[in-house]
């Protein structure tokens, strides 16, 4: 059975991205900037849940106002990340840092879903339940790990 990663890597589309002196670095820079936007805004929501920042604003209001920025960052990050992945698919398949990043991303996404479905319902204008604070701490840890693993990909190339 042919390796799907190799098939993706060999497409003319992926080859064009990989071999371009402009497209690849531009995509990489946009990916890092959008990741920064996403992680930075998530961190502010998490730190509000933990009571560290924006103490005068209710946690629900902070979450409502900032999450659209997070989604904007996520959209750009997902598109650029997919294109970068296509360009390097065969090399990333066995890269331990990439595998770690993918697992951490999955866990961070699951943590966000759990927050939306379970912990968010207990949020009030003036109080943050323990499960929401635990989720916020887990989120910060997982996103820090994702950034670290993403940066480490280059060291295992």
């Amino acid at each position: 059975m042919p390796d799907p990663f190799q098939l993706l890597y060999d497409t003319s589309f992926a080859t064009a991205i990989r071999e371009s002196e402009v497209v690849f670095p531009v995509l990489e820079s946009l990916h890092v900037l959008s990741l920064a936007l996403m992680v930075g805004t998530i961190a502010i929501v998490d730190l509000r849940l933990l009571g560290v920042v924006l103490p005068q604003t209710s946690p629900l209001a902070v979450e409502r106002r900032i999450v659209p920025l997070t989604w904007a960052g996520f959209a750009v990050m997902a598109v650029t990340g997919s294109l970068l992945f296509a360009a390097e698919a065969a090399k990333l398949e066995h890269n331990p840092a990439f595998i770690a990043k993918a697992i951490l991303l999955l866990l961070a996404g699951l943590n966000m879903l759990v927050f939306q479905w379970a912990a968010r319902s207990g949020l009030r204008e003036d109080a943050v339940p323990l499960r929401a604070r635990v989720g916020a701490a887990a989120s910060l840890t997982l996103w820090a790990g994702t950034v670290a693993a993403g940066r480490a990909i280059a060291y295992f190339h």
């Binding site: 890092v32 900037l33 990741l35 920064a36 936007l37 996403m38 992680v39 930075g40 805004t41 998530i42 961190a43 502010i44 900032i66 920025l69 820090a144 950034v147 670290a148 940066r151 480490a152 060291y155």
Partner: peptide
């Protein structure tokens, strides 16, 4: 490598904070 990871994470926090505070 470890310093670079810390730099990137700190820059992400700074960028997100400036964006929210600025807007």
């Amino acid at each position: 490598a470890v310093i670079e990871m810390a730099h990137l994470f700190a820059l992400a926090l700074l960028g997100g904070g400036l964006l929210v505070a600025g807007i």
